[in-house]
Structure formats: C-alpha cells, structure tokens
Design a protein around this nucleic acid. Sequence first.
DNA 1: CGGTGTAGTGTACAAATATACACTATGTCG
DNA 2: CGACATAGTGTATATTTGTACACTACACCG
Lengths: 216, 216
Amino acid sequence: MEDITPRQRQVLDFIAAYQHRFGYPPSMREIADGLGVRNLFGIQRHMAALEKKGAIERSPGSSRGIRLNNGIAYPGQEEQLYHGDEPLAHYLPIVGTVRAGMPQTPVEDIQGYYSIDRNVARSGGTFFLRVKGDSMINASICEGDLALIRPQEVANNRDIVVALVEGEATLKRFYRENGRIRLQPENPNYPPIIISGDDGDVSIVGKVVGIYRSLD
Amino acid sequence: MEDITPRQRQVLDFIAAYQHRFGYPPSMREIADGLGVRNLFGIQRHMAALEKKGAIERSPGSSRGIRLNNGIAYPGQEEQLYHGDEPLAHYLPIVGTVRAGMPQTPVEDIQGYYSIDRNVARSGGTFFLRVKGDSMINASICEGDLALIRPQEVANNRDIVVALVEGEATLKRFYRENGRIRLQPENPNYPPIIISGDDGDVSIVGKVVGIYRSLD
DNA sequence: CGGTGTAGTGTACAAATATACACTATGTCG
DNA sequence: CGACATAGTGTATATTTGTACACTACACCG
C-alpha cells in the first residue's frame, strides 16, 4: 500500500470523504471537480494506479463502481476535504478527558476520530470517551472501550452517565432516590457517590448511549 | 415508517444487500433485475414511495444516488441507513444464525443492517452476529451485543471466535494446545469444548473483531 | 358496479458516466 | 542531455442510467 503519491492520496481521500458524505462513491467527473481538475483522464490514471496498488477495487463499466479497500486510513487529513463549500467528512471526536467546558470540544484533547452511524449520533454534540479503569466492569464496560456520550445534564434512573468527579470523568450508573442522587459504580470494589441536597462538586456530563470495542 | 408494503420492503432489502456486497448502491435496472422484474417504472414507483415514507433519500439525476435513511428502526427486519449529513461508509448484515455456508450472505437470514466504519470493516465478508446467551460474560460480551465477525477458519490462541457447535453459533475463546483445540467459554457455568485429533462436528466460522452495544 | 391503491410491461429519450486517444508540461535520475 | 514517471488538457464515443408516458392486471372496499 506504500508508493501512493500525494496526489493519489488526495484522490483516495476525496473518494472516502465523498462516500462518507453522500453514501455512495463519486463519479469520475465529481472526483475531478473535487480536486479542481478540468479533465478526466488524469483521474482515470490515478484510479488505475490506485487499483493496481490495491487501494481500491473497481467494477468496469459501472457508474460509481468504486470500492475502497482500506477506507479512511489517514487521520488528520479528512477535515481538509471540501465539496464546494461544505466539508465532506464528519467525524466524532474521541476525547481523552472530559472537562467542565463540555460539550464544547477541547481540541487539544482529541485522541482521534471515529466515524459513526447517523442514527446513533443524531444530536450535534455527541462524542466518544475512551473508558479508563474498571469501575463499570459488571456492566460489561471495559477499559479501552469507546463510550458514545450524548451530552445532557439530566438522566433517568439506571442510566449510565458520565460524571465529573473531582475534575475527572468517570462512568457511573445514575439513581435518584429520596431526595438525593447516587452514582453507583458497577464494581463492588468502588464505593457509590452520594450527592445529597444541593449540588456538590459533582456534575453530570452526559449519558452513555453506546459502547464500541475493537478486538482486532 | 409504517405503511411500507412487503414489495417495497423487498426493494429496500435488495438495496441494502447490494450496498453491502458491492460497496455502492444499485442502479434502477439492477434493482429490477434483482427482484426479477423486467421493468423500471414499477421500481421507480417503489423508490418514490420509499422516499416519501422516509425510508430512503435520493439525489435526482445522479446515478446510484440512493441513501438508506433509517437506522435500525423495525425490530426483526430493519434496514440500515446512511444519510446525507452523517452517512457511514459501509453496511454490514446482521445475521441471526450462522451457517456452514458462510461467508456467503444468506439473504433470508438477514435480521438487519448496521453501518460501520470502513477501517473496521475492510474485508468484504465481514458481518454482524447478535450475541445470544451469556457464555462470554466474563469477557464483557453481553446478550444482545453485536459482534463484528471476520470470516476465517483459522485463529490464534486467545482469539474470540464464532464456533459452529451442533448447528448453532456460539462465541468461544480459541486455544490450540498439545495437539487439540479447546473452545473456552468465558463463564464458569459453561464447560469448554475439546476437539481432539481430527475435526469433529465443530468448525470455526470467524473471528470476533469488534463489539457494539446500544444503550439508548 | 365504480373507485382506489399496488404492481407489472413495453417503449422512448435525455442526461450522466466510463473509457479512450493524442498532446503538453514538469519534475527526477543516470 | 535523454529516459522515465507523474500530472494536466481537449476531445470523442459507446454505454449506463434516470426519468417519463401509456397501458394492463389484480385485490380491496363502499
């Protein structure tokens, strides 16, 4: 997969971003337009080279018959792609530590990006948090998992939420009972956090709506 | 999303299956061919109906300009999405029961589709299996999770694999030790499966490369 | 009965699209 | 310098594809 020239990489990025944006691959002319090129033949050559190098597969004669083999493999470049005025790629940031400033994305803490299904991430501020520690191990949430967080300050009983405790984000199960709030770890080695009366130094950042784990 | 006729659902299923197999949506004629229909106009009507009902979106005049809209919306026979603002690169079928015939997609067993990042699902035959039972609970894999499976007949030690045991698919951790194979559940309530010497009635279907869980 | 909704057939045409060829320009490397 | 690889332009053509219209068939319902 090496030997891909910078220009070919741009083509590849554009295809990936277009696919991501529209749900189907671009046509030759759309690729040319996207790269600001007036002509198709150069794009054809790039496509042939990319196919020869294994980056894509094609179905000859079929419109938009492009299949990406490695997908979006270049983190850090996809934000630069535009189609007209609109940015093509939309990713959810993976933040390392959650802060009080959320859900404003703390750019300097972004570990990477993860593209995600729209119906999972329908609201704008959704983000990923990489799980640290084993406080939710009995809820089958492990260290290293990506927790998909929907920012919100309220929660229902038994929701798993991101709580900001002493400046650090942890996952807890949320309970509201007789006038107080209990944040319960799913691990007997950890004590629950009780918030009675008015708010202490604990706040709810959001709700965990999904868990993603890579075993590869 | 109600009011979708059985025939329209077949169209929707075909689009999803085609998208999964080829990486791009089908053309009108391909849909008609896939449904055994000689004509396009009926398909056009179905497409218009599906768009009106919100199941898909289309880009008029654009070849293969189809986006499946819905997410996992219908229990049992859902199709999955892709959409303008936040489409995902790929569709994977969710199969209910794994068979010896895999990785050829058994269309009649498809429970639904789940879109997933392309750099997770790079090879063609990858699919989802919905986890049944609690045999891997100590590996934090729960009933109802979607296990992302990469079909393969070989595995490394400690890989979590899909094993076909007595016609049913279960997840086990794979061990090869002193000339035999051990399929170890991650639950002390279940016994390991030992395959000694030549193959018995147990086969490896694929390797678990990801776990996805929705808590919403 | 007529009215309505769903579904299929045959045909036609304009637009979108992939593919091809000849030519030019710019680098790098021996 | 020449050989070679990468990259862009203009043009042309056959194929693929979306879209449209007129007509038929069937089931359901008041």
